[in-house]
């Protein structure tokens, strides 16, 4: 187990370094640099040259990468070229915002999705099942940014119940209540697709399991429906669930980009899109490092979860 963990962690470091290097290379090979974006059409050759020198862009790409990497190893992520502030606190701020949003999405999507799936499977063929299946189908098909706009129009503009933008109200105290109120609509928007996917997968896994011999045996023993589904069947769909949870956690993190844009949620996805468009190299690099690390850790966590939920799986 420990040897496996160490091996995976070493591999994770290799993946993260590889990703950061490839992104750095791709970004520098793309035409256009921050100096050009800053100056726009006001770019005289002298100003361009001076700005490139001040930003260190006149050095070879490999040297630039090594300089960046050596600084990062010392905990210095540099300063954003476009935002004129230190990268690390900005990443922390942005990533926390995304994590809050993602956590909201996870808390809605995972339990609700599982519950809907199990209920639908247990009531297979009934109107309840058909309604839930149709709703899940609809949920998967609706793009998040569109749902977000509909929710804003309904609940912010027409009803005026919930705020439709930002994390805190501009004149408010900025406390936890303020945050939660602002979180409701974006979290629902973000959760909708994963919730539907999880519901559909739970339902089909559950139906597979319910057809197994041991379930028939359990029923034959006279166990209650609740025990059969809750203990015997549910336990056996957990491996499939762990996989989809891992994938969906990644999806939630990625899907946050759209939701962040629609709700002006100051998260990392929205920041990355802008940073890439404006060639803000230090910010992109820092963001990539953080996001890649998170993905690798989620994957690792999922694999470890397998062993926990299914005693037959052992890593050596």
């Amino acid at each position: 187990m420990w040897r496996y963990l160490v091996r995976r962690l070493i591999a994770a470091v290799v993946v993260v370094v590889g990703v950061s290097f490839v992104v750095f290379l791709v970004l520098h090979l793309t035409p256009g640099d921050p100096a050009q974006v800053l100056l726009g059409p006001r770019a005289t050759p002298d100003d361009l040259a001076r700005l490139r020198q001040e930003l260190g862009l006149d050095r070879p790409v490999l040297i630039q990468y090594l300089r960046w990497a050596s600084h990062v190893l010392r905990g210095d992520f540099g300063r954003s070229i476009m935002q004129h502030r230190a990268v690390l606190p900005e990443l922390v701020r942005r990533f926390s915002a995304t994590l809050i949003l993602t956590a909201g999405g996870v808390l809605l999507a995972f339990p609700l999705g599982t519950l809907v799936g199990i209920v639908a499977a247990a009531r297979q063929g009934t109107p309840v099942d058909r309604l839930m299946t149709a709703a899940a189908m609809l949920g998967v098909s609706m793009p998040a940014f569109w749902v977000g706009l509909l929710l804003i129009i309904t609940f912010s503009v027409h009803l005026g119940w919930l705020p439709g933008a930002g994390m805190y109200s501009p004149t408010g105290s900025g406390g936890l209540t303020d945050l939660l109120v602002h979180l409701v609509l974006p979290a629902i928007t973000l959760a909708l697709v994963p919730l539907s996917i999880i519901a559909r997968l739970t339902r089909s896994s559950m139906l597979d399991v319910i057809g197994e011999d041991y379930i028939r045996t359990a029923r034959a023993k006279g166990l209650s429906d609740r025990t059969v589904i809750g203990r015997h069947a549910f336990r056996n769909i957990l491996v499939a669930m762990a996989t989809v949870f891992g994938l969906q956690a990644g999806f939630l993190l990625a899907g946050a980009v759209y939701v962040e844009t629609v709700f002006s949620w100051p998260g990392i996805g929205f920041m990355m899109v802008n940073a890439i468009l404006t060639r803000d190299f230090p910010l992109v690099q820092g963001g990539v490092l953080l996001v890649a690390t998170t993905y690798v850790l989620i994957n690792l966590g999922t694999d470890l979860l397998y062993a926990y939920v299914d005693p037959r799986i052992r890593y050596g």
């Binding site: 912010s156 005026g160 933008a165 844009t261």
Partner: peptide
């Protein structure tokens, strides 16, 4: 930054 958000924030009093 999102155009529609800007408008809806004005409409909803944000």
């Amino acid at each position: 930054p999102e155009e529609q958000t800007r408008v809806t924030e004005l409409l909803s009093g944000g």
